[in-house]
Design a protein around this nucleic acid. Structure first.
Lengths: 110, 110
DNA sequence: CCAATAGTGAAGTAACTACTTCACTATTGG
DNA sequence: CCAATAGTGAAGTAGTTACTTCACTATTGG
């Protein structure tokens, strides 16, 4: 598998979990600690830490430990990968749809 | 979990597999049969059929069986869901980045 | 100083995923 | 007609994932 493929793989995998998307939504409001993230999720600190590792690997989140507190924040890098993928593929689908439109037009004419 | 959440879940899960993305790429060229999809993938027909089920459920692919042949084609519905999700969330991240920019500006001034 | 707080690491588990094989049905070209 | 073709269904498997518990190491406020 290509390198870029592995990145996309991790990204979609990271986004494919509702708990991780909830974490992202939370972090969109403001940076926060692991415990504060865990509180409303109804799962253990450990589980949240594991999700955060996945999110960090896909560059959707960046964390930094100061003292005993690890602060988590949104990292836009992962999101730009998603945007680029979507943009790249959209043009292809649009082209396909245009072609479909052309075919239908030809059918109408014929 | 909300209904829309389950849709997003399925979508990201579907896109999170390289074989399924390969199938999508192939279908972008032209509609084709299950066997033709399987040929270059090096996995069994059955496996491809299983992937197709996932892709259909996430509305990225539509299939139709005529005679003994099932023809598969791109279905844009799933993609628009992805686009909408990306668009909705991008604005939030951009806002966050602007705020970050503002904070940095304030720091510079202060 | 020290009890409470914040997080880490390792190991286990139940459920899920991406496959496989094999037996089977339906369709069709020659 | 009938052998080859196209796909389906069920059941099994190896690996992964999303958790858990428990024991542990900082760090810090009072």
């Amino acid at each position: 598998m290509k390198d870029s493929e592995r990145i996309i793989d991790r990204l979609f995998h990271a986004l494919g979990d509702p708990t991780r998307r909830a974490i992202l939504d939370r972090l969109t409001q403001a940076p926060t600690s692991v415990s504060r993230l865990a509180a409303p999720l109804g799962i253990t600190l450990t589980a949240v830490a594991q999700h955060l590792q996945v999110l960090e690997e896909s560059r959707l989140v960046r964390t930094e430990k100061v003292g005993r507190v690890r602060t988590c924040r949104i990292e836009p890098a992962g999101f730009s990968v998603l945007e680029k993928w979507t943009r790249d593929h959209r043009s292809t689908w649009e082209r396909r749809l245009e072609r479909l439109g052309d075919l239908l037009a030809e059918e109408d004419e014929g």
